[in-house]
């Protein structure tokens, strides 16, 4: 990442953090509330945002598809479905089984979308999005069916599915943050492979990179990062879609700058969105997932419009 860009992203991140720490009905003079309430929540928003931004950048790079992100591809839905089944089975959010199950759900759903899109032969943007939508819709329906028929605790689980950061368990935050940091470090170390993948499978192969192996690896990293984010905040969409597009304008297409910038940008974006959600309609709170969908869905439409114009 260039020095100027690094400063820019740091400034954006710092501004989002300040907003998140200062926004709220108690104002900004109550040190107790800032330290004990807003700080943990800001950290959670940063971790989730970074995880989703990272996953978005990895998916978009490895699939060469500007419309992909963990929400569109079904990764988040897979993770959410697995998490909901874990809650109903009584598996604690801090247990390793929970993280493994959520990861398996995310990875399974992503591969299913990918496999479905490839059935048509050449992997097209539209096929991938369609396959992702189909997988997401099916998994969401499964979750809704489970919640409707289970009855117990279903309201708080609906809230989880909606996505938000109302109550964050410190243990979950710690484990998830470590997972996301690990995935980010591994992805950054392999930026060359990601850049080679962007040139197409054949070119990557000639550059001495095995596209099949790298694809599985980057999928795994993106899924680990997504599932860690879902474990904290449920299904929050569009962070992974928007941030890579925004930061790419500053960093250029190389994964070397793009991947860390997407993580930082995602962190800043979600911290700001969450702070807005909990302070704008006080005393009521709007879940961060809803704020992101409000901002992100029009962005997605704009991307579709842009990509359709690019083709003509």
């Amino acid at each position: 990442m260039q020095r100027n860009n690094f400063l820019l992203f740091s400034a954006a991140l710092a501004a989002a953090c300040l907003f998140s720490l200062a926004a709220g009905p108690a104002g900004w003079s109550n040190a107790d509330i800032i330290l004990n309430l807003r700080l943990p929540r800001t950290l959670a928003a940063l971790a989730v945002g970074a995880g989703l931004g990272l996953a978005g950048a990895l998916f978009q790079g490895v699939l060469k598809n500007p419309l992909s992100d963990p929400y569109i591809l079904g990764t988040s839905s897979g993770a959410t479905a697995a998490a909901v089944f874990c809650f109903l089975a009584g598996i604690e959010r801090t247990s390793p089984v929970f993280f493994l199950a959520v990861f398996a759900g995310a990875f399974g759903a992503t591969f299913l979308s990918y496999w479905l899109a490839r059935l048509a032969g050449r992997l097209s943007d539209a096929a991938l999005v369609l396959a992702g939508v189909a997988v997401s819709a099916f998994l969401s329906a499964l979750v809704m069916l489970t919640l409707t028929s289970s009855g117990a605790r279903s309201f708080s689980l609906f809230y989880f599915v909606l996505g938000g950061l109302y109550s964050v368990q410190p243990g979950v935050l710690l484990v998830s943050a470590l997972l996301i940091a690990g995935a980010a470090a591994l992805a950054m170390a392999r930026w060359r492979a990601l850049d080679a993948m962007a040139l197409g499978s054949e070119n990557a192969y000639h550059l001495g990179i095995s596209p099949e192996r790298e694809r599985v690896l980057f999928f795994a990293l993106a899924c680990a990062s997504t599932s860690a984010a879902v474990a904290i905040g449920g299904t929050i969409g569009f962070v992974g879609l928007m941030t890579p597009h925004i930061v790419r304008r500053f960093t250029g297409p190389s994964a070397r700058g793009l991947v860390p910038a997407a993580a930082l940008g995602g962190a800043a974006m979600l911290a700001a969105a969450d702070a807005a959600g909990r302070s704008l309609f006080s005393p009521a709170e709007i879940p961060a997932g809803v704020v992101m969908a409000l901002a992100g869905a029009p962005f997605f439409m704009w991307l579709l419009w842009k990509s359709s114009r690019g083709r003509n």
Binding site: P25, Y166, P283, A284, E285
Partner: peptide, 13 residues
């Protein structure tokens, strides 16, 4: 209003 999600900070205040 009838039912809504209250911000935790408001409850603390």
């Amino acid at each position: 209003r009838g039912y809504f999600q209250a911000a935790w900070e408001e409850v603390l205040l």
